[in-house]
Write a protein that binds this DNA or RNA. Structure first.
Lengths: 148, 148
DNA sequence: CTATTTTGTATGAAAAGGAATATATTTTTG
DNA sequence: CAAAAATATATTCCTTTTCATACAAAATAG
């Protein structure tokens, strides 16, 4: 097989690295009884409860209508709670329920452990370099409101 | 907003970097009249015509049934062609049509230009480092047959 | 060889995602 | 302030993906 273009193409390498590494963790998520979308929302909320739908969508790399639907499912499952914003009645703020919190805590610990495993192959310096490179890519390439 | 866990979490940084940078290019793809899935298949095939469905699925980071359907659509659109493998009649090999080739060539040029733009912020050394880091991640984290 | 297992692709029903747009509320403008 | 524009979320309709599984062909084991 040729592999001339694709295997040296930055966008492919990024997509593939993300995909491979994430796939490993998503296997583990099943153990915690969480779907990928649920995990992403709960992990985001664990950084700051009470985000709006729009903030969550941006954080979880989803479009707003998609997030509305994810939240509806998660609210039905009792993982999160919708609460109207007091000062702006257009906004809906999302909070983790006790049940959601219990479900995500183990997953968070597992996520940290998994990250350690992935980074175990690298020196702390290399790991820090890798992360700052990725952050630079993100910063330089726009806080695009999910054009894709 | 807290952003304590997520913004330092490797898997998130990878997903976000990939998502942001890809989103830029996917905007350009529209100009070429190609959907993202079509682009990925055609770009893969441009590296080696005649891959099987399974190889294409792995290459394009998709599941096999998804790829079967993508190929069906693309064959209907006249972009690719299914041909049975001579020596193994389970296999189906996929080839670009003249039409598909014409459609992907400009997109390939554009992809290379876009990559240059993204990498313009980096020295050649840094760019090479970034790519080899990503390749290392891919290599060490499994040729998992799309568990996810 | 034949039976069993494995591999490669396809299919069908259900779930999820996407684009466009509706609705409600707030902000801005003149 | 009233009208217009902007913002936040929800909804509708349609396409795509996923999961499970079927089906066919090849490889392997007795």
């Amino acid at each position: 097989m040729a592999e001339r273009f694709v295997n040296d193409y930055l966008l492919y390498l990024l997509a593939r690295a993300s995909s491979e590494v994430s796939a490993q963790f998503h296997q583990r998520l099943k153990t915690h009884g969480l779907q990928v979308a649920e995990w992403r929302v709960l992990a985001s909320l664990s950084d700051g409860d009470g985000m709006t739908i729009g903030e969550l969508a941006a954080r979880a790399l989803q479009r707003q209508p998609t997030m509305t639907k994810i939240i509806t499912r998660m609210a039905d499952a009792g993982l999160v709670e919708r609460r109207p914003d007091a000062s702006d009645r257009r906004k809906v703020r999302i909070f983790i329920t006790g049940d959601g919190r219990r479900r995500v805590d183990d997953a968070l610990a597992d996520a940290k452990a998994h990250e350690q495993e992935v980074l175990a192959d690298y020196s702390p310096t290399e790991a820090a370099q890798m992360k700052s490179m990725l952050r630079a890519l993100v910063d330089r390439n726009g806080a695009s409101p999910r054009e894709d």
